[in-house]
């Protein structure tokens, strides 16, 4: 796509504006990265090194930040003493499990809703998406009661079902958009060739595949980062990474080195996954309201 070519005469104002925008961009870049950077570096610091700060106002003393001998002990202790391998697996199973359930049920429902029409369809559709928008705190108590009756509290299947409450409506909503873009003529052709209706549905799945793939990643991202469901529904047997990290904060001591290490373990995989589906991120995060 061509861009709007405007002849810009070199002028003093133009130069000043250019310098200012560059500085602004630079400041914002530092502001964005710095917390990540400090988290990353602090995860390799021993307790005393992490507490080192220059005196107030001494900007030359910032070098103190790099003045430490790196240690891997926080990472090692998280895995040897704190069961982080289990929590990592719990996070992985719960989030991918829920993504899979949501995408299978969601694709079926989204396809049906895309291809059929019935009275009250708009209302059903709004109900579906409103369940995605409902604040988790608001519905937590009755959900907990249901899950307790089904003996799902503290289990991975329970957590998968809990995550499905927000992933499934999201799946139906987004996937319907994908299927709307697949022409019905393709299924018609398949059915003329003798495929069943369900066969025709399977035939067009590959056409929506890139979107579905990106969408699975988004579902994993949402559930991996969840805290409220995991801390209440998952409490006990299905502790996930965010909850386990939060538990490193105790009234008597806050183990900062370990918290930072756990933060790195929790955020790095999701940051990478997020960048992988960069192209679908806007659509996903705005629930399909904006397309890039």
């Amino acid at each position: 796509m061509a861009t709007l070519e405007v002849v810009r005469y070199a002028s003093k104002t133009r130069t000043v504006i250019n310098v200012l925008t560059t500085i602004f961009l630079g400041v914002f870049l530092v502001w964005t990265i710095l917390p990540f950077f400090i988290m990353f570096v602090s995860s390799f610091k021993d307790l005393l090194d992490a507490f080192a700060l220059p005196p107030t106002g001494d900007f030359r003393g910032v070098g103190v930040f790099f003045n430490f001998s790196p240690t891997f002990k926080h990472y090692i202790e998280l895995f040897t003493e704190r069961n982080f391998a289990t929590y990592f697996m719990n996070s992985l199973v719960a989030s991918s499990g829920s993504a899979l359930v949501s995408v299978v049920l969601g694709a079926m429902a989204a396809y049906a809703m895309s291809r059929t029409d019935f009275r009250g369809k708009d209302h059903v559709f709004f109900w579906i998406i409103s369940t995605r928008m409902a604040p988790v705190v608001a519905v937590m108590v009755p959900l907990y009661a249901i899950f307790r009756n089904l003996e799902l509290v503290g289990t991975l299947p329970g957590l998968i079902l809990a995550y499905t409450t927000f992933n499934l409506p999201f799946a139906i909503w987004i996937l319907k958009g994908f299927f709307d873009n697949v022409p019905y003529a393709i299924e018609e052709a398949a059915m003329v060739d003798g495929r069943t209706r369900f066969g025709a549905f399977l035939d067009i799945l590959p056409l929506a595949a890139p979107g579905i793939g990106a969408f699975i990643v988004l579902c994993i991202l949402f559930s991996w980062n969840d805290f409220l469901f995991a801390s209440i529904i998952g409490s006990g047997g299905a502790k996930t990474l965010p909850v386990a990290t939060r538990e490193l904060v105790t009234p008597t001591s806050i183990q900062w080195g370990k918290i930072m290490a756990a933060g790195v373990i929790t955020s790095v995989p999701m940051t990478l996954l997020g960048l992988l589906i960069r192209r679908y991120l806007v659509t996903g995060l705005t629930m399909g309201a904006v397309k890039e």
């Binding site: 964005t32 980062n225 969840d226 805290f227 990474l241 999701m270 997020g274």
Partner: peptide, 12 residues
């Protein structure tokens, strides 16, 4: 680069 904070779990 600017996208990175969004991927972090809010609790972290």
């Amino acid at each position: 680069v600017f996208l990175m904070p969004m991927m972090m779990a809010p609790v972290i």
